[in-house]
Each structure stands twice: as structure tokens, then as C-alpha cells.
Amino acid sequence: MTDAAWESLSNQAVAACGLVYFLALLAHLVEWSSLRKVPVSVGAASTQSADIPGGIAVTTGPDGDDDSAAIRRTEIFGRLGYLLTCLAVAVQFVGLFSRGMAADPDRVPWGNMYEFTLAGTFVVAFLYVVLYRRFRLAWMAPIVVAFVLTILMVAVIWLYAPVAPLTEALGSYWLVIHVVSAIIATGAFTLGGITSALYLVKARATARDSDGPGRVTGYVARLPKLEVLDRVAYRLHAFGFPVWTFAVLITGPIWAHQAWSSYWNWDPKEVWAFITWVVYAAYLHARTTAGWKGRNAAILALVGVATLWFNFIGINYFSTTSQHSYAGGAPAPISADRLGVGVEANPLG
């Protein structure tokens, strides 16, 4: 296949996966809207129905047929949504892969913000699909799919850039490891952040509800119990944190040392990666500190995700000294602004 063919395959695959995510989102919306008709029994949200792994809690109400039809519908649409998401993830992988093949020479598909965002959303969706059973993530479905779809749209509309070869400094296998692990951690932290956000929503709703039971309804009522949300969030963060440590504090510095002669430069991208790391360390501490457990820890997790995505997208607009010039056109691999302009010695007389 020619590079141009790979490139158009990639563009088509990205468009197709966007469409499939959209269908998946619709399926989940149908699922959740038909669930509105099914009563949530007390405590139902904590026990998962056994036949759908990760399925949403439903009780077979006493009032018979109406409910069971609705339940069947939610099951079908829930499963459909999940399968569509799996399909979309597979198609997105094709898009990512062919993006790498479209470059000459073939390379890893993260040379610019568009590709980086493509890879990041892929990992979020992929982790969700993989962890769906293990962590029973059905309740997360509409949010994850909506999130991935939105970011993907942002990538296609605003960040798109044609395929181009990597600049020299980016062509290091340490960089490959560094970016892969950073993206994986980003995926895990994003899912963790979503969970923590839902924890806060549920905690608020439950607190409001304390004066009269049964008032928490709809989506929130069907979220798992607070302890479960807290535990799932913790596990996602506990997975993400060492991976982030590996990315930011091991492979990143090794690469920086190779490329720029010092392993830590306090460059804005590095600073924010460090800030993210410290905030998540604080999150892990908060979970074991009285008075910080639960709500405050969840807030810290959200702060962590905010710093993470700010670093990913926002910092480029605040600072131009970053050597991680993914954004803004062609980065100079070895660039003029690092020259010692204004040196005193005159080697040439």
C-alpha cells in the first residue's frame, strides 16, 4: 500500500470509529432511558445482575410484564452498546496503525497533537473495554463513550495535521516507551477521574437524599455504592500511578538526557508532568488520611486529571519554551533558541 492509501485509510477509519462510537452512545442512551421505567430497589445498585458481566443492577419488580420487557430492552441495548464500543475501538486501532504506516519512514503514530489525542482516546476506550468485566464498569458506559467521542471530534476538527515524519529528537526508542506509558497512564487516570467525578455526584445526591429515602433516581441511583466507586477509582489510579512514574520519572529523563544532555530541564511539560505526579501522590495519601478520605480524595483525583489534560493540551498555549513541541507546526529538532546567543568569547578573532 502506498503512504497516501494508508493515510486515507487512517482518515476513513477515524471517521468510521467516530460513527460507531456515536451509535454506541445512542445504544447506551436508550439503555439508560428505558431503565428509568424500572424501579431501583434499595441496595440494588450494589449487587450486579449475574448474567450480564458488569451489568447494571436491576431488580425484577413485583409488577411483572412491563418491567421485564423494559429489563430485556436495557439488557439488549447495554450489550449492543458495549459491542459497538468494542468495534469502535478496533476500528480506531486501524486508524492509529495506518496513520503510523502512512509516514515515511513508518513510525509510531504520535508525532503531533492530533495523533497523540487519537492514541490517548484509544487507550481510554481500550482500557474501558478491557476492564469492563473485571471492574464491572457498565455504569460508566455512557460517560466514557461520550467523552471519547467528544475528544475525538475535537481532534478531528481542530487538531488535524497531515502525516509527516518525526523530527530527529523524537526518533528514539526510549521516546516510544515513554509515550506509550504516558498514554496508558493518561487513559487510566482519565477513567479514574470519571469514576471520582461520579463518586462526588453520587455522594452529593445521597447526602441530599438522607432526609427522605428513594429520592435519588435515574442514573445516579444505579451507580454502584460509594465504597465501590471509591475502590474502583483507587484501583484505576493505583494502576496509573506506577505507569506514570515510569513514564515521567524514568523513561522521560532517560530520553531527555540522550537528546538534550540533561535528564531534567524544568521545561514546562516536565514541570506539569511532575505536578501531576505529586497531585496523584497526594491523592494516594489522602485515601489513607482521616478527614481526607472519600470526598477530598476524589476532589484531588479530579485536580490530578485537570493537570494531566492541561499539560496535554493547554500548556502549549501558555508557554513556548517547551521543547516538547508537539503542538504548533514543525518543531526544530535542534533549534536556534537553545544557542548561546551573546557569548563573550570570540573564537574567530
Partner: peptide
């Protein structure tokens, strides 16, 4: 915990204001 948060906060200005050790020009 609070010191960790302070450290994170204290690192912010250096990413926005140019640093002479990073880019003197």
C-alpha cells in the same frame, strides 16, 4: 499531604514565567 499539594502549587509559576536556567534569552 499539605506539603505535597504545596509543592505541586509552587511548581506552577516556573512553567509560566520564563526561567533563566531554562532559557536565558
Amino acid at each position: 499531604l499539605i506539603l505535597l499539594l504545596l509543592l505541586a502549587l509552587a511548581a506552577v509559576p516556573g512553567s509560566i514565567i520564563p526561567q533563566s536556567g531554562v532559557d536565558s534569552l
